[in-house]
Design a protein around this nucleic acid. Structure first.
Lengths: 130, 130
DNA sequence: TCACTATATAATTATACATGCATATAGCTA
DNA sequence: TAGCTATATGCATGTATAATTATATAGTGA
């Protein structure tokens, strides 16, 4: 059992990771610290937007930063993010594979199978949905 | 380097995990499959809301479901979610600890330290902002 | 068939958030 | 100081999403 406050903090971290642009930023930082300009160059977003995402990542403690002269270098604060991405990546690939099997196979569309209906039919549905 | 489509899929999964209510649902499922009613009983949300969150978790492939008579049993589809939560939990705890140290120590407010200013002062700031 | 339980869905509202543009601020150099 | 570069912030806007209420649908048993 986890405390309510902790659940919210953990959820917030997942939420911060749940943005394609921010994942790409972390990816760009995988090789080491980079300045904002460099990151903007790697990705195709505009500078203010990248800066705002970097701020969000920083507030979440996922990246660190240090000013060097006129530039600010950002770096991944906790390498665990790469582990997380790897795990989710694998899991996502598995899920996509399953979806592909279903699509290529029975053409069933993710409905709930009644235990009984499961015995008489390959195609279950939940209130005719999906 | 990861494909753009994959980045979006992974981000979507993180986003689905980035909701306190959904984390609590997964927590409730840690002991094994449960019906919607049971989950609603464990948490304090109302039934339609829980059902919608369950649908989102299902679409993301994070839970599976099977109807049994009048009830629908939901279960965790991929135990990797618990690993993810554990990793984020630890990382979050570390981050919170650091914040605590800063707060108790120099009272600095997470500004960027210039390399030079770092040498002459313990308190850095970035445009006077946090 | 009807009544009942369990679950899902629709419609609404309020809020959070990403984006883009304009602008402000910090640091450097002359 | 002024001008330049790099970065951050404010504001406006559109979109996504969570919560709530009411309702619809599936299954069960009489």
């Amino acid at each position: 059992m986890i405390h309510e406050k902790m659940v919210e903090l953990v959820a917030r971290r997942f939420q911060v990771l749940g943005e394609p642009c921010r994942l790409r930023i972390l990816q760009a930082l995988e090789g080491g610290p980079r300045t904002v300009s460099e990151i903007v160059g790697d990705l195709d977003g505009n500078q203010p937007n990248i800066s705002k995402h970097l701020q969000i990542l920083f507030d979440a403690g996922l990246v660190g930063r240090e000013r060097s002269g006129n530039s600010v270098f950002y770096s991944v604060a906790d390498p665990v993010v790469f582990k997380l991405c790897e795990l989710v990546c694998r899991s996502t690939a598995r899920h996509a594979t399953h979806l592909g099997q279903y699509a290529a196979g029975t053409r069933r569309r993710s409905g709930i199978q009644t235990q009984k209906s499961h015995l008489r039919s390959k195609v279950g549905s939940l209130q005719g949905v999906n």
